[in-house]
Amino acid sequence: MYRLGIDLGSSYTKGVLVDENNRITGFHCVKSGYNFTNASSKIISHFAEDHEIEYPVYTCGYGREQVAAAFVSNSELIALSKAVYEIYKRPCSIIDIGGQDTKFISMNAQGQVDKFKMNRKCAAGTGSFLEEIAFRLDVTPEEFTEFARQATEEVKINSFCTVFAISEIIGMIKNGATLPNIIIGIYNSIIQRSVEMSVVEGHLVITGGLPAKHPTIVSLFAKKYPDSSSPEHSQFLAAYGCVLLNRTSYIVHRTL
């Protein structure tokens, strides 16, 4: 029997399959779209084809209660901390950059959340911010990474607003700035937004869909914070944490 953790995020729904020894044996990710129930069904069907799944499944994220199966829901911040603690077993600062949220978590030596903060109402500096800019510049995430390698210096992006940031970038291109230098500027602007949420203490763990898709961000973090790392498949950690967490937690179990 396998347990299934599903993180129903604003942009993507991530699923992990976990065996009886708490080891992850499979990952699957689909776009959340407008229907979380459909997205979660796709995750469940994907794993159910070859594995016997134990119900309830364990969920977190914006769509955590829109699941067409027995489920146990949880806060993704608590779940993420649980998974990070499982890996690191020490106090950490966690920065998670997702589709529309950036989260800053201070986790103590017992793996508990001591303090946390989420980005303000605006989604600048999140995955959506980068996706919008990529769309407008007609550049894929892979090309972003490739361009970033060619950068010779950083161009500073000032605007807080995604739309105005694009206008600012277009103005920079007009004035002769190169795309690689601008891309480094965009990455650094995202990092700046995240570290101003709180004070980084101890080891910094970077997680979420954005660093997973844009590994340059992780390297740029490491320049600023040498004591930092980003685990592999970090965008799946909250889903994994759900499975780990619900062995010990007291959560409502609902069947739709």
């Binding site: 146990v72 619900n246 937690s249 007291y250 959560i251 409502v252 179990h253 609902r254 069947t255």
Partner: peptide, 15 residues
């Protein structure tokens, strides 16, 4: 169907 797991100390009330 709705029930509580580990009923001893629920964090959330269903209603």
């Amino acid at each position: 169907m709705e029930k509580l797991l580990n009923m001893s100390e629920p964090i959330i009330q269903e209603k």
